[in-house]
Each structure stands twice: as C-alpha cells, then as structure tokens.
Amino acid sequence: MRRLAILALLAWAGLSHPALAPASAVGLPSEMLRDPAQEERARSIGRELRCLVCQNQSIEDSEADLARDLRRIVRERIAAGESDRAVLDYVHDRYGDFVLLRPPFSLATALLWGMPVLALGGGGLALLLLRRRQGARPEPAPLTPEERARLAALEDDPAR
C-alpha cells in the first residue's frame, strides 16, 4: 500500500516537470561558481533534485536551509571535477528516489512511467472494440418458403 501511495505521489510530482519551474528564485553571487559553464551544470543538476523540505520545488528554487546546503554540495563536487552523473548519485545515495524530480525506471516506478502507454493502449483497445461491434452487422435471416415463392413469382412476371 505504501509503495502504491508513493507511486501516486511520484505521479503527482511528475506533473511538475523541472523545466516548467519558474526561474531560479535563489542564486546569490556568493554561492555561485566562478566558471559560468560549471555554474550552468550545477543549476541543471539542481533542477533535477527535489527540495525535501518544501517538496514541490527543486533545490535551485527553494529558500530552505537544506536546499542551500545541497546546492553548496553540488557546486563543491562540480568544482572538484566530478561528472554530473556522480554528483546526482551522491545525493541519490543519501535521499533515495524521492529526491529525484525525474524518478528512475524501476519495478516500483514502472506503473508511473507506464501509465501513458497504458492509458493510450486502453483507449485504443476500447475504440477498436467499439468499431468492430458497429462493423459486424448481423447476418439477415434466410428467406422463408412464402417469401421465396413470392420472390419467384415477382421474377417470373416483372410487369405485375
């Protein structure tokens, strides 16, 4: 049950895609990296990480103390020459899937990621069934002997 609930929450969180978040509310010059390219990398990593205090913001957008600490950690590790993947893994190792605004595909998140396919497939199937039902008209019943006799009479004497 708990897992399902987490999934539901993740699904809800998935709606707020990091790219749609407003421009960084934080970013004091004192906490930025000197190298603009490194700072840009730090920001894009930060936008992937959930602030665990406010939970619907990334650490780049949050004023929370913990978010600031995590921003600092991201920048320290980038300055130390780590790859983006390694920095993300560092935070992921400590806070689990919950900290990632884009959760990885796993058994627990399969339903979350599979939902669009499931919904589309289900809808398509329903449409297909509906069309097949409309397409398959019932076979007309065979003619009764009286009808056949009448038809034969009509064919014999079209003038009548």
């Binding site: 049950m1 708990r2 399902l4 609930a5 987490i6 539901a8 929450l9 665990l52 939970q55 190792d93 400590r94 806070y95 689990g96 919950f98 900290v99």
Partner: peptide, 23 residues
C-alpha cells in the same frame, strides 16, 4: 479503496505522503 487506505494510514500515522523513505 486505495484512497481510503491512504487516508486511514495518514490518520494513524502509518503512512505519511510527505515522508521521505530512508535509504
């Protein structure tokens, strides 16, 4: 049924939607 279980869990404290599971 799922939502009812979630609400009940929130009431008893066994389920916290804001809770971050510890790794």
């Amino acid at each position: 049924a799922g939502f009812y279980a979630m609400l009940r869990g929130m009431g008893t404290g066994s389920y916290d939607p804001r809770g971050v599971p510890s790794v």
